[in-house]
Amino acid sequence: MNTIILANYRVNKDTMALLSVAHPDYHTIAIETDRKLYIRKTPFQLIKAACLKGGSTYEGRRAAVTYLTGAKHKVPIPINPFEQIYAFPTSSPTQFECCWIFHNHVETISRYQQNKTLITFKNEQQLKLPVSYYKLEKQMYRTAQCIIRFTHFSNEKPFCMPRNIPELIHY
């Protein structure tokens, strides 16, 4: 099999997971709804770039989620709230083993073996991760909270000045 390795990758609505791998030629396997891609950049580099393309920095998105939800560790990230692209890390984003799962594609999570979890995506693909069921369940919950907060926040009407500002009359 000839593996095509990409120098870069753009996170999109079809991205289901970014897996961190130890390979001399690539650092990420991007799992999409209908294909796997091999990328030279790390998952964290791809997440940071996707945040910028979505209108903010990773640090800005992270700070907003912390402010709105109180989450401080393994914070889910609204990569592009307008396109409903939200992802969560499976461990600390600075750790090599951290993978990113895209919430809207997850159908179910279930216990697989001790400290392992099976993710079933909506397209029936499955992914086994060496992460406890409890941790992934908590991340799914945190991401759902994040989605609710950002959806509510983005649906608020922005403050606008009235068109006709009355003149002050001085007596």
Rank of each mutant, 00 (worst) to 15 (best):
M1C: 02
N2L: 13
N2F: 08
N2G: 04
I4K: 12
A7G: 05
N8V: 05
Y9F: 15
R10H: 11
V11C: 08
N12Y: 06
T15M: 03
A17G: 06
L18W: 05
L19A: 03
H23I: 02
P24L: 08
P24V: 04
P24Q: 12
P24H: 11
D25M: 08
I31S: 03
I31K: 08
E32R: 10
E32S: 09
R35V: 01
Y38T: 03
R40I: 10
P43Y: 08
P43H: 06
Q45F: 10
Q45T: 10
L46R: 05
K48P: 01
C51V: 09
L52G: 01
G54N: 03
T57Q: 01
G60C: 03
G60A: 10
G60I: 01
G60K: 04
R61F: 07
R61W: 08
A64I: 02
T66C: 09
Y67N: 07
L68V: 07
G70A: 10
G70Q: 10
A71R: 00
A71K: 00
H73A: 14
K74P: 06
P76I: 05
P76T: 11
I79S: 06
N80W: 01
P81C: 07
P81R: 11
P81W: 08
E83N: 11
I85D: 10
I85F: 10
Y86P: 12
A87F: 03
F88R: 00
S92D: 15
P93D: 14
C98N: 13
W100K: 00
W100N: 01
I101H: 10
I101Q: 04
I101V: 15
V106P: 11
V106L: 07
V106K: 02
V106A: 06
E107M: 05
T108Q: 13
S110L: 05
S110D: 13
R111K: 13
R111A: 13
Q114Y: 15
K116V: 00
T117K: 14
I119N: 09
I119F: 03
T120P: 00
F121S: 03
N123H: 11
E124T: 14
Q125K: 14
Q125M: 10
Q126H: 09
P130L: 07
V131D: 07
Y134I: 04
K135I: 04
K135F: 01
K135M: 09
E137H: 13
Q139R: 03
M140W: 05
Q145T: 08
Q145V: 02
Q145L: 12
C146P: 04
I147D: 00
I148H: 14
H152F: 09
F153N: 10
K157G: 00
F159M: 05
M161D: 12
P162S: 09
R163E: 15
N164V: 14
E167Y: 09
L168A: 11
H170L: 12
Y171I: 01
